[in-house]
Simulated scan of single mutants.
Amino acid sequence: MHVQIVLFDGFDPLDAIAPFEVLHAGGTASGGAVSVELVSAEGPREVVSGTGGLSLRATGALDPGRPGVVLVPGGSGRVGDPVDAADFEDDGAQEDAIALRLARVLDTELPVLLKAAIEDARITVATVCGGSLVLAMAGLLQGRHATTHHLGLDLLDATGVHAVRARVVDDGDLITAAGVTSGLDLGLYLLEREVGPQIAHAVEDLFAHERRGTTWRPDGPEPAAF
């Protein structure tokens, strides 16, 4: 399983690094059955996150035709951060700044590449936090089940997505995770689903992290109202 983690200007570092470390460890534990890289729509470059000017280097270009997983993080930052200082006139709400930052992604080549990836049956698209909002705002998730940070569930629902309040949601070739630390849970679930539970358990033990909640899937009987 090869995983491409997509970086874009203003991304949330933990959304990208948490699954990267989990999946990299999974590659070691599985004898190379998992590989992971940081990519961008533009190709190799330094990509500035939305957190304190921290940057990571994308080592390649996103290939929407390469079988495996394409993982999209969310955004981070506050109004007035250096990457956005010219775009704001006051100290507005953090979530408004993040929504604007995610909306900017729609003006890049990334939505076109993500559309190609999500239409390829050989590819699973995964997201952490606001990454699902990027796909939703690009019109790529209508009618699908997905989750995001709890502050963005209403926006996700407004785009025609069946928003689910769960830590991880498995909708077949679309797997989404909630708030930023859920990137750890997402990485472990990908290992369990694609490589096997023993590998996932070994990495979970290495990271001293116990996954939270039940992975939601559109299976089984619907619960009665409480």
Rank of each mutant, 00 (worst) to 15 (best):
L153E: 01
L140K: 05
A163D: 01
V164C: 02
L153A: 03
L135M: 14
G160Y: 11
G143N: 13
I175P: 01
G143D: 05
L141I: 02
V164G: 01
T127W: 08
A166S: 15
V161H: 03
T147R: 00
H162W: 08
A178K: 04
H150A: 15
I175L: 09
A138K: 03
T159K: 14
L156E: 06
Q142W: 00
D170S: 12
D170C: 06
D157P: 03
G130S: 15
T127Q: 11
G143V: 13
T159V: 09
T127V: 15
S182M: 09
H150S: 15
G160M: 13
T127I: 13
V164I: 14
G172T: 09
A138I: 02
H162E: 10
H145D: 03
T148F: 01
V128P: 05
L140D: 02
M137F: 04
D171V: 09
L153I: 11
G130V: 13
V180F: 13
H145M: 08
A126M: 08
G160C: 12
A163G: 05
G130K: 08
V161E: 01
T181K: 10
G172L: 04
D157N: 15
H149A: 09
L155P: 00
D157Y: 05
M137R: 13
L156T: 04
A177K: 10
H149Q: 11
L140C: 06
S132Q: 10
A163E: 01
V169Y: 02
L174S: 07
R144Q: 04
R144G: 00
M137Y: 07
A136G: 06
A177I: 05
H149G: 12
L174Q: 05
V168W: 00
V128M: 14
H150F: 14
A158V: 06
C129P: 06
S182H: 09
